[in-house]
Nucleic acid binder design. Sequence first.
DNA 1: GATAAAAATGACTACTAGGTCATTTTATGT
DNA 2: ACATAAAATGACCTAGTAGTCATTTTTATC
Lengths: 217, 217
Amino acid sequence: MADGPTEITKASEAPRARRGPSPEKTAQTRRVIVDAALGEFLEKGYADTTMDGVAKRAGVAKGTPYRYFPAKEALFEAVVREKIAGAVIDADPANRRPDETASTFLRRTMLVSIREIERNGRAAIARLVLVEGARFPEMTDIYRRVMFEPLLNQIRTLAATARSTGELRRVELEKYPHLLIAPIWFAIIHNGLLDRDHPLDIGDLFEANLDLFFDAP
Amino acid sequence: MADGPTEITKASEAPRARRGPSPEKTAQTRRVIVDAALGEFLEKGYADTTMDGVAKRAGVAKGTPYRYFPAKEALFEAVVREKIAGAVIDADPANRRPDETASTFLRRTMLVSIREIERNGRAAIARLVLVEGARFPEMTDIYRRVMFEPLLNQIRTLAATARSTGELRRVELEKYPHLLIAPIWFAIIHNGLLDRDHPLDIGDLFEANLDLFFDAP
DNA sequence: GATAAAAATGACTACTAGGTCATTTTATGT
DNA sequence: ACATAAAATGACCTAGTAGTCATTTTTATC
């Protein structure tokens, strides 16, 4: 997937002696470049980020990133792919404790990750994927498969269960689980793209929304 | 604001005889260029749109757009500025009929414009503003002032009124009028950027959301 | 039809930035 | 120390595109 400059020694050959800098150093360089690239992409967007700028920020020469990524596009894809991974908001019903209400469960799982979403940079990545999505449909596909659809399905399942136990009276969540996450996305674009000067507290907004479905305590 | 190629005759001078093509023709050319530019910007985004491409699409020569707009940036700004204008979703309480419930009023005003939002291209413009917003903060400012804040204020006012009459039991709307429009924005980015193949019906989503605040009929 | 003023043209320039590669540096095994 | 192979370098090449402007075309007036 992501090519490094080091040839992988085939198991069939005799493991030839390795010369030159250690693989650890190489991996480190790669990491520095990816981190620098993320910073540039977040600050300037894809089009306004230059490979030279990335190299400068990483403290390497113009040509070095090209030893790890064949083109700017590949660098971008690698960056997003590697940074999306940890960005999952999880509400897997399997983790629900016995006798825990759906409402409490959602506060313990979703709400907690949501409250960190701006601080830990995941909101910024979401915005990056959104904004560059038209140019990189594959990127958006990954995002959807990894983050989006699983969460919607978890919410749908949870809603169905909560309805059957009588905890949830409203029917809307089963048809439109989107209604639970819409305020999160709204706040993400609001805070980063629409009104940076008056950021919404994403956690508070989400809680207010939760109260609409599950009556406030 | 938007310079045309024709000098404006000052009222103090004798109104000299006008030569060359009529102002109507000139205005028409300008319109053709703006429309072509909108098309290109929507399809390719700002960075990937070329002035030559705009000219070709408009059926004019490379240099012609520059007679109307000094630079690509100015063309983009003019395009967005002129297309934002009509894109207002309105729920001005002043238009509320006597004895009309808040719920009915919102269905008659907001819901109607929302149901057209994809068809009439306003969703696409919203996405354009979002996606290019980082590069053109001024553009986003206009959007916020013209579309965003007025609507939020209208909703807030409406919520306060509906609460005082007892029609609205939930308190959330007064603190977070955003909760009413979040699903609209969510659907706009969902349909255009996240999952083009499975578009949500924005009107239905909005109605389901409305039912959360005002009990379903 | 001649004239003049504005509009339109498109070859041209300048510049930016992606990508290459011969050369140099680094680090390891002998 | 020396040899060697990988990693890193940065001058260089090139494609593409924003913006210019001398020239040509259009069209209303005389």
